[in-house]
């Protein structure tokens, strides 16, 4: 397939695949008098990460790497280890991380060309490598260090909630492989969905709440300790990022 054709397909994919998902749904006819029909809000994909279920195995990190052949040195999804305490009262918590597909995305706000945008039909924040000029403004702007410049395209790149899978009814690669079933993915606008129910009933947190980004990735029982913010100077807090960028941003 020619390069141009590949690129066209990619753009089409980005734009259309969300619609495809809605129309391909199997319609189940229910008899009259069936349960209350739910009003159709636009789909908004979100992920809940229950860190109680995470064992830090990094299957998700490697699955993501493999699914997209992410170049060495870059990561779309990774797992941090947060270790703290004084012997023998030591804890190590695991914090899986990825693009948060913010509802107020800084990357979109700063992008000069509109290459990065939040899809109206499902809320996924994507980058069109054809339009991106590689200015790196978004890399700086993202408070979660979720983006990188792809060495092959020179364009910005990041997690896209496995758009190519989700649009065809498959869960994202990280969700598929997770041993603890710690990653729950779905439409947060659907009150019957698992993500919506968890968000509504569990004490969930997001990363760097004060930034006003309104992430679509929610955590249950996450340890938000950060070595830069220890209250007690001598307190031991260490974060291992397991990626090239060894300090957490």
């Amino acid at each position: 397939m020619q390069e141009n054709e590949k690129k066209l397909l990619r753009r089409e994919l980005l734009n259309r695949i969300g619609l495809g998902a809605a129309t391909a749904a199997v319609a189940v006819t229910l008899p009259a008098g069936a349960g209350a029909a739910v009003a159709r809000d636009p789909v908004h994909y979100a992920m809940v990460i229950d860190t109680r279920r995470c064992i830090g195995c990094q299957a998700c990190s490697v699955a993501c790497k493999a699914e997209f052949a992410v170049p060495l040195g870059a990561t779309r999804s990774w797992v941090e280890y947060v270790e703290k305490g004084t012997f023998p009262h030591v804890s190590r918590q695991f914090l899986p991380r990825l693009c948060n597909h913010c509802r107020n995305p800084q990357c979109v706000n700063v992008c000069p060309t509109g290459a990065t945008f939040k899809r109206a039909e499902d809320g996924i924040v994507v980058v069109d490598p054809e339009v991106c000029i590689g200015c790196k403004y978004c890399i700086q702007a993202c408070p979660y260090d979720a983006r990188f410049i792809h060495p092959d395209t020179g364009a910005a790149d990041k997690c896209d909630f496995c758009l190519h899978r989700v649009g065809r009814g498959l869960v994202p690669a990280c969700v598929n492989t997770c041993q603890g079933r710690a990653r729950i993915f779905g439409d947060m606008n659907d009150p019957a969905s698992a993500v919506a129910q968890l968000i509504a009933t569990q004490p969930v947190t997001v990363l760097r709440q004060g930034m006003g980004t309104r992430p679509s990735v929610f955590y249950i029982a996450a340890d938000h300790s950060d070595p830069r913010e220890t209250r007690v100077p001598s307190q031991y807090v260490r974060v291992d990022t397991h990626r090239r960028i060894q300090e957490r941003r």
């Binding site: 739910v38 699914e67 659907d190």
Partner: peptide, 16 residues
């Protein structure tokens, strides 16, 4: 049961 007439998501067994 009420249903949003949505396709059952597939946990695995395929890739694209």
């Amino acid at each position: 049961l009420s249903n949003r007439a949505k396709a059952l998501p597939q946990p695995g067994g395929k890739d694209f």
